[in-house]
Write a protein that binds this DNA or RNA. Structure first.
Lengths: 309, 309
DNA sequence: CTGAAAGCGCTTACAG
DNA sequence: CTGAAAGCGCTTACAG
């Protein structure tokens, strides 16, 4: 049958309500047109912004994408990868759950499910990874506070269990040490990663002896929560306590006070990850590249010279 | 082959790396284990909370769910429904895009894709719908402000193009009229549905002549944005201007000031929608029921007696 | 160039 | 109870 004829038939078929059966096609061609995306939590605006750019990139190539949260539970992540394998998905973009062994990713790859990592890295996975240069980013924030005259600076939120967590803390440490400033262990309030947790950390922060005059926060959510908690306690964030965020979410600019933060290139991360995966689907060779996107400091109203009262 | 034997073989097969091919199974059984969920914007925390409860409900029945945004574009919604049909999805839970004709939903149903609506209704679609009682909810907020002594009350955000928009405005109108209060048309600032838009609406709000002393907002995002804008202008939300939200997002309680808002039962909406869909998949008959979840007023710090200065 | 047949990996109805 | 065969709806390699 000639192509033109086939096209005409298909067009007519569609008009009268024919539905193309992708399962059958996929069974035959072993191409499903499905790409999986799994992150810690899609409701987190940081991932939400990445997802939006992945979405627009995949849309363009008419790939359907399946989204899932793993909530940092390896088991949930494994179930999802299993599902993708069973559905014959063409690839997966993932922000690996804490503790993901490289074998999990290699297993996917060996079963024909190419993977691309975002936001976090897995040592030895041998697949492309896209994320921001976290150490450099918190360095920017810390140096900014130091240059304003702050000497006692806390780091609020995050965990040492992820590469991102270690890198961000390291950037803060390096900046403090380079400036010859003391770093007290109890100035590290690790844990918080949400607005709620940042809000709750305010009490702990304000109760510290040698109370810091500034806080480098894990992300914008923690920073905004912390600022809310500081306000609730009757102090003025951006005046009494300087606060920096991380990510530069859309929300950072309209917070009160407007948040000084580090732009993390989430659009860029999503776009590039999607493109590399699409390239791989079209037969390009894997390069286990580690692309670091250079963050930028966006100074707004939440940081100022320290006020000694 | 006996069941026990089959099970033993399957178990062994899995152990040595066998991957079950769901496409093949689905082709044969015409059951795919996939449920589609399409909403205006999954990044909106209101939907995010609904999605979380849908997720936990579907997880329990081992259904995979595919998520998509339609951004209120009918074309995107149609493409997604097409995709679901092609993949042989078992059902769809949707918050219909503005202007969705009942035929779109009937088409899905006729092709074996049962639908359940959330948050919005489509007249004549003949499928179950779950949402809050919006008119009642904004009535609660408006009456609360009236009882505090407010006489000039604005309504900020939302659109008349959705059933929800019309219902919420109607609830406000009814409450005002029942109390014998005047409603000026320019007190309705329609449009805003995001934090950003609420923030931008503050200028317009504060510039009104006969400036209202309180604002009933479309949702929590608009309310928080508006409060940020009011703060930025040097006024104190919750003192100079009372503000109510809608939805009672997790964020409402930690906003500054803590937001008085209307709990909208999003968990409940998601849970029930998922259950009814699962029931339908298991052969239960459709009932085109319209379940209204009763909202509740949660009073916090963003509302107080009016201050005439 | 055209058309009929094989086969993707399952499940189920059926013959033995 | 067991095992071989048919068939879901596509695509592709192949014979004519």
């Amino acid at each position: 049958m000639a192509d033109a004829t086939r096209d005409r038939i298909k067009e007519h078929a569609r008009a009268i309500g024919y539905i193309y059966n992708r399962r059958a096609a996929s069974l035959r061609t072993s191409r499903s047109g499905i790409v999986g995306v799994v992150v810690h939590d899609i409701m987190n605006p940081f991932f939400a912004e990445i997802l939006r750019s992945i979405e627009s990139e995949l849309d363009r190539s008419r790939q359907t994408f399946i989204l899932s949260n793993h909530y940092d539970q390896l088991e949930k992540q494994r179930t999802f990868i299993d599902t993708l394998l069973q559905l014959g998905a063409d690839g997966v973009i993932m922000s690996p759950a804490i503790g993901t062994p490289p074998e999990d990713i290699r297993m996917a790859e060996e079963n024909g499910l190419p993977a691309v990592l975002i936001a976090r890295t897995v040592e030895g996975a041998g697949v492309p990874a896209f994320r921001g240069d976290d150490a450099y980013g918190t360095g920017l924030a810390t140096n900014h506070l130091i240059s304003l005259g702050h000497r006692r600076i806390a780091m609020v939120g995050g965990t040492d269990q992820t590469s991102t967590g270690r890198d961000r803390y390291q950037g803060y440490l390096n900046a403090m040490e380079t400036a010859g400033l003391e770093v007290k262990p109890h100035w590290r309030l690790s844990g918080p990663r949400t607005k709620q947790a940042g809000f709750e950390a305010a009490g702990q922060f304000l109760a510290m002896k040698d109370k810091p005059t500034a806080a480098v926060c894990w992300n914008d959510l923690v920073a905004i929560g912390l600022m809310n908690g500081i306000s609730r306690a009757g102090l003025v964030p951006g005046v009494d306590i300087s606060v920096t965020g991380y990510d530069d979410l859309e929300e950072a600019a309209i917070a009160t006070p407007a948040l000084t933060t580090v732009w993390n290139g989430q659009r860029e991360v999503g776009r590039r990850a999607a493109r590399v995966l699409l390239d791989r689907l079209n037969g390009a060779a894997v390069r286990a590249s580690q692309e670091l996107i250079k963050p930028e400091l966006h100074v707004r109203q939440s940081t100022a010279r320290p006020v000694e009262r």
